[in-house]
């Protein structure tokens, strides 16, 4: 396995197609975090992201085994493009399904600003909030910042964070608590409001 981890993506692909099945293990391990992170950033739902991630790599495996992979670019770009197409497919399916007719009702439960898309102004405020949160997170002590990033940006559970950082779950939870307290304090000090009014 160690020898294989030294191989390039292209060499691993060739070896996998030639029948060395363990090469796909290295390829999946090498690119899983990037692909899943991208899907998660787009769909923002763990279960849906997992489904798309699984389908993307099933397509990768099938295409490689069928000998239909053309070695015309980076392997990771090809996988990312497959994931992207699946995300777009999902959006288009949703678009066709999520239609609500309000023909027969005087009062439309869904016709509310709460359920509407954000206006340009709201989007600007939202982007500003995200940027301010990101700035405040960067100012946290390293161990607290690490927990916030793993939990909210990478979607890890506290058990996984504890394993990754070699601490107990209670310590990870404690760090998150202190991180939130510090963020709240920094917001007050800077007179920042991070909610849409």
């Amino acid at each position: 396995m160690d020898k294989q981890t030294m191989l390039s993506d292209e060499e691993l692909v060739k070896n996998f197609i030639a029948g060395n099945v363990t090469c796909i293990d290295v390829l999946i391990d090498r690119h899983k975090a990037k692909v899943f992170s991208y899907i998660m950033m787009c769909v923002k739902q763990q279960e849906l992201a997992e489904d798309i991630f699984q389908e993307a790599f099933i397509r990768v495996i099938k295409t490689l085994k069928k000998g239909r992979y053309s070695d015309s670019g980076k392997f990771s770009s090809w996988v990312m493009r497959i994931a992207h197409n699946l995300i777009i497919d999902h959006y288009r399916k949703q678009k066709n399904q999520v239609m609500v007719s309000n023909d027969n009702y005087e009062f439309d439960l869904f016709n509310s600003a709460r359920f509407s898309d954000k206006s340009v102004e709201e989007k600007l405020v939202h982007d500003q909030i995200l940027s301010e949160v990101g700035m405040l997170v960067k100012m946290l002590p390293d161990n607290q910042r690490e927990v916030v990033e793993m939990r909210h940006y990478k979607g890890l559970s506290f058990k996984e964070i504890a394993e990754e950082t070699n601490v107990s779950i209670n310590t990870a939870l404690g760090r998150m608590r202190y991180a939130l307290m510090n963020l709240r304090r920094m917001m007050e000090e800077r007179n920042l409001s991070l909610t849409l009014s």
Binding site: I28, K32, F36, F53, M150, K154, E160, E163
Partner: peptide, 13 residues
């Protein structure tokens, strides 16, 4: 980087 898809990765392999 740690990711939260280890079970799926095992299934894929």
């Amino acid at each position: 980087q740690k990711s939260s898809v280890e079970l799926i990765v095992r299934k894929l392999k």
